[in-house]
Design a binder for these strands. Structure first.
Length: 465
RNA sequence: GGGGUAGUGGUUUAGCUUGGCAUGAUACGUGCUUUGGGAGCAUGAGGCCGUCGGUUCAAAUCCGACCUACCCCA
């Protein structure tokens, strides 16, 4: 498994060997969540719930099926999705009068109901989210977690009194994202999509993008400002304090199981997965190293050690399988457990335990008395280092250019005057896509790579995964 | 969207050219010996060869369609 040589092959291999998913389900792009993969997904969902609950979003759950007429109300939206939805056309043997589709995203399921929920300014802001499966008929080649047809999906949907309050929500979403990405040790950039690449129906779209080892970008999610583009066709209106009726302004924030793919791709190495402590099902694994004559003493000591670490609030697994220690080391490295804690007769005699970091392979000794504290500190350090290192790698993959000739397979940054004409020319000439322009100012001063006009806006260009 | 490669016990693989008992490894079960970086021996179980159809006395093998996975190009 060589990540640097053939990223694609490495990714497929590791996802299978670490047992994150079972791709043998016989429908294209629909994989089985295995226990290990699902636990990681659930840890991510738990983080999401914590952050959104803490910011006064309410979890809801809307139906999977959407009637065709309801789906078709917003023109841009249906244009963007109608080639990739799954249809339900029959009930039993009877053709349906109104066909139903499997949600590709839930705007059109939710908004007719939002129009009933939102009556007055006192109902606003309405902040909801749900974690459900969505369906998109991908025509490109599928890939576990990264491009699938049944997508485990998070989506928040909010309604606001006016544009300004919706903008405030977008800024809150940026803050939530920053906290979440830190927990997952994932570096990212917020890039505003071009007008020709924004979400169907949105006023603007901000993509959350990261870079993979092969130089391609991976979109982790998006945040959209809809203004009143949906509230008008779906009649989400409220009565203001002044008695006037106004359309709500709306936003959404979506992320998916791609986060699992990103964690695999960003942190994994040739030995297997490397899980950030926050999403690791098992944060520490205790391995007793048995020796003849002392097997029971070592086993007992290992049980006590594991329990003590567990009591300190660390998700701890005691590996008592009848395998050689080396086999266990390889196994847990493949599974990405952040920290290995070894206890053998030699450690016991010295009153220590051996800690081995998954990310660096570095070994260290900790006093047995303070083992739990040492494990906790080490996990914090691992998380901090994972984020720092991944951030450096992403920064190093960004290359600023002033010409479009001989571009490397990197995340390209170049000046852009902002016109659609020059934008299309950039995409045609580079045979890559404009991912977007930075949301946060970057103090850029340069010239448009096409027309040469001075500009303070850089544009990010890449092949997307 | 266009082109290509491949599907054989859980995984991997031989057999396909030239139709005739499906081969090994690994993983798995059991027993004993082992245990600080992938243990050894013994023994056991597991496959109607991706699906459907065609040719044939006979198909994993030849032909067709489909499904799925992977690769390359747009």
């Amino acid at each position: 498994m060589k990540k640097a040589e053939d990223f694609s092959e490495w990714y497929n291999d590791i996802v299978e060997k670490a047992n994150l998913t079972d791709k043998r389900y016989p429908v294209k792009g629909m994989n089985v969540w295995t226990p290990y993969g699902w636990k990681i997904m659930r840890a991510i969902d738990t983080n999401i719930r914590e952050e959104f609950d803490a910011t006064s979003h309410d979890e809801v759950c809307f139906p999977l099926l959407i009637p065709e007429d309801q789906f078709a109300k917003e023109k841009e939206h249906i244009k963007g999705f109608d080639t990739e939805v799954f249809w339900v056309t029959h009930a039993g043997l009877t053709p349906l009068d109104v066909r139903l589709l499997l949600r590709p995203t839930s705007e059109t399921a939710m908004y007719p109901i939002f129009s009933l929920w939102v009556r007055s300014h006192a109902d606003l802001p309405l902040k909801t989210y749900q974690i459900v499966n969505t369906f998109r008929y991908e025509t490109k080649q599928t890939r576990a977690f990264i491009r699938v047809r049944e997508i485990h999906f998070f989506e928040s949907h909010t309604c606001h009194a006016d544009f300004e309050d919706a903008e405030r929500q977008v800024r809150e979403d940026y803050e939530i994202l920053e906290r979440l990405a830190k927990r997952w040790c994932i570096p990212y950039k917020l890039l505003k999509r071009t007008d020709w690449d924004k979400f169907p129906g949105a006023a603007y779209t901000v993509g959350i993008d990261t870079v993979l080892p092969n130089g391609r970008t991976l979109q982790l999610g998006s945040i959209h400002q809809y203004m009143d583009n949906f509230s008008k066709p779906y009649e989400i209106k409220y009565e203001g304090e002044d008695g006037q009726h106004r359309y709500a302004h709306q936003t959404t924030f979506g992320m998916s199981e791609r986060l699992v793919g990103a964690i695999v791709a960003i942190h994994g190495d040739d030995k297997g997965l490397v899980l950030p402590p926050e999403v690791a099902t098992m944060q520490a694994v205790v391995i007793p190293v048995l020796a003849k004559g002392a097997t029971e003493a070592v086993s007992q000591a290992a049980r006590e050690l594991a329990e003590e670490i567990r009591q300190a609030g660390i998700r701890t697994h005691l590996d008592e399988r009848d395998l050689r220690p080396g086999a266990k080391y390889y196994d847990w490295e493949l599974k990405g457990v952040p920290l290995r804690v070894e206890l053998g007769i030699r450690d016991m005699e010295k009153g220590v335990v051996t800690l081995v970091r998954r990310d660096t392979g570095e070994k260290s000794l900790a006093h047995r008395k303070d083992a739990a504290g040492a494990v906790k500190d080490m996990l914090d350090k691992i998380a901090a280092d994972l984020l720092t290192n991944a951030g450096s790698i992403m920064d190093a993959s960004i290359v600023t250019v002033d010409s479009l000739d001989d571009l490397p397979d990197k995340f390209i940054r170049a000046g852009w005057c902002g016109t659609e004409e020059c934008g299309h020319r950039i995409e045609d000439r580079t045979e890559r896509n404009i991912i977007g322009t930075p949301v946060e100012g970057e103090g850029f001063k340069g010239m448009c790579v096409v027309c040469g006009k001075p500009t303070t806006t850089p544009v990010y260009i890449a092949r997307a995964m």
